[in-house]
Design a protein around this nucleic acid. Structure first.
Length: 325
DNA sequence: CCAATTTGACCTTG
DNA sequence: CAAGGTCAAATTGG
């Protein structure tokens, strides 16, 4: 898919998400929260409209993760030892920007409910922080090929860009270990930091707790955004587990003033381009099928409205022509 | 003692 | 050839 289309769909999806969040919080939440969400919704649709208006020039210069190459390579025979590299091409790949809010220290994490094992780390040219490479813990037990890369954002150190590759084929969405949340960067290139600082950061990071599985409503949303996503499991098992693991501070009203925004995955990135989905042709059919996402939002009207236009990440037709003609 | 992480070497890709 | 991605031996940690 073309970059502009990705941007457009992301914007629309984002608007949809904010609207839905607003639906579920509009009765209970504070006034400011509602206002914030409304602003985000307006901004998303504004950007979407701009994208449509300037449809000739849709490139997003500042997002290196968008490289929607569709290698049509349909030839991969036997697994030679070095087929690892071939497989890269045909695996579905999507990027998620995760914000770890740190105002109170514990408001989110990169734990997505799966257990990952780190297998590498690289300094990336032009990036302040190294990139961590993770694979599914059950790769050898069950041959699960899922992998992810985690990179701390240059501008905002509370934002992590998580790129998933391949889906989980393992049954066990085994207990996620607190240590495997993806804070991969270590400090071999930050010599100027004091030991105290490093220890402080480590403490903070280890105390972060899962949020993707915290709010039942959110799980449904994540599946709407990532129809193919196995990265955000929604078993109630996991849910209970994480709730049990939450610290009292986190749940208590005294610190919950703005949990709403931290629970929401932030799709930021310049130009409003944050979350994007790419996939190889072999996966497209999987993505476009399964329109059966049902939520039990209190405001059914709005929900239905948005679900009717459930903007898929991969359209079976030319999106821009469809919208602009 | 076993499992996870670290880290430099090695490999692929553009 | 340089940059990114993976491997695997050494190290760390529970």
């Amino acid at each position: 898919m073309e970059e502009g289309q990705v941007s457009l769909i992301n914007e629309l999806n984002q608007g949809k998400e904010h609207a839905r969040l607003l639906c579920s919080h509009i009765t209970s939440s504070s006034h400011e929260n509602n206002e914030f969400l409304i602003e985000k919704i307006l901004s998303s649709y504004e950007k979407a409209l701009n994208l449509l208006t300037h449809s000739q020039n849709l490139t997003e210069p500042n997002n290196p993760t968008i490289n929607a190459h569709h290698h049509g390579s349909s030839r991969f025979e036997e697994d030679s030892p070095r087929d690892v590299y071939k497989k890269r091409k045909i695996m579905p790949k999507w990027t998620e920007q995760v914000k770890v809010c740190s105002r109170t220290g514990i408001e989110g994490s990169l734990d997505d409910g799966y257990s990952w094992r780190k297998y590498g780390q690289k300094d990336i040219l032009g990036a302040k922080f190294p990139r961590g490479y993770y694979r599914c813990t059950h790769r050898f037990l069950q041959g699960c090929q899922a992998r992810k890369q985690v990179q701390k954002s240059d501008e905002d150190p509370t934002i992590f860009e998580v790129t998933y590759r391949g889906r989980h084929t393992c049954n066990k969405q085994a207990v996620s270990s607190k240590k495997n949340m993806g804070f991969g960067e270590n400090n071999h290139n930050h010599q100027n930091r004091s030991q105290e600082e490093e220890e402080e950061e480590e403490k903070m990071e280890q105390s972060l707790v899962a949020f993707f599985t915290f709010e039942p409503e959110l799980e449904v949303k994540m599946e709407d955004i990532f129809p193919t996503s196995s990265g955000f499991p929604s078993t109630s098992d996991n849910n209970n587990q994480f709730v049990e693991n939450l610290s009292v501070d986190f749940i208590s009203p005294s610190t919950s003033e703005s949990n709403l925004f931290c629970l929401s995955p932030c799709h930021m990135g310049s130009g409003g381009l944050g979350q994007n989905v790419q996939s190889s042709e072999s996966e497209v059919t999987d993505i476009v099928s399964d329109p059966t996402s049902v939520t039990n939002s209190p405001l059914l009207d709005l929900d239905v409205l948005f679900n009717q236009q459930d903007f898929q990440s991969e359209f079976p037709f030319n999106t821009l022509e469809f919208f602009s003609s």
